[in-house]
Amino acid sequence: TIDEIIKALEQAVKDNKPIQVGNYTVTSADEAEKLAKKLKKEY
């Protein structure tokens, strides 16, 4: 679900690790936030 994706992003940001979500690779908190907002609009 979208919530699980967002939790995974938040965890990756805390661990400061890049995370791959679908076609996106998120490497920073800023990118994670942008991706989360984008995904919320889509779903």
Rank of each mutant, 00 (worst) to 15 (best):
T1G: 09
I2P: 04
I2C: 14
I2A: 04
D3H: 10
D3V: 12
D3W: 15
D3S: 12
D3A: 14
E4F: 11
E4L: 09
E4H: 04
E4Q: 11
I5W: 10
I5F: 04
I5E: 01
I5N: 01
I6T: 02
I6F: 06
K7I: 07
A8K: 08
L9V: 03
E10R: 06
Q11N: 08
Q11M: 10
Q11P: 01
Q11F: 01
Q11T: 06
A12G: 06
V13N: 03
V13H: 05
V13C: 09
K14G: 05
K14R: 14
K14T: 07
D15V: 05
D15M: 09
D15Y: 05
D15P: 01
D15F: 07
N16Y: 05
N16Q: 08
N16I: 02
K17L: 14
P18D: 02
I19G: 04
I19T: 10
I19Q: 03
Q20N: 11
Q20D: 06
V21W: 06
G22L: 06
G22Y: 03
G22F: 04
N23R: 05
N23P: 15
N23I: 08
Y24T: 13
Y24R: 14
T25D: 14
T25Y: 15
V26M: 00
V26T: 07
V26A: 09
T27D: 14
T27P: 06
S28M: 06
S28F: 02
S28P: 00
S28I: 04
A29K: 07
D30H: 08
D30L: 11
D30P: 03
D30Y: 10
D30I: 12
D30R: 06
D30S: 10
E31A: 05
E31N: 00
E31L: 03
E31M: 06
A32D: 01
E33R: 12
E33G: 06
K34V: 11
K34W: 13
K34C: 15
K34A: 15
L35C: 13
A36E: 04
A36Q: 06
K37D: 14
K37R: 13
K37G: 07
K38Q: 13
K38V: 06
K38A: 11
L39E: 02
L39A: 01
L39F: 02
K40D: 04
K40V: 07
K40H: 08
K41Y: 11
K41E: 15
K41N: 13
K41H: 13
E42S: 05
E42D: 13
E42R: 09
Y43S: 11
Y43H: 11
Y43N: 13
Y43R: 12
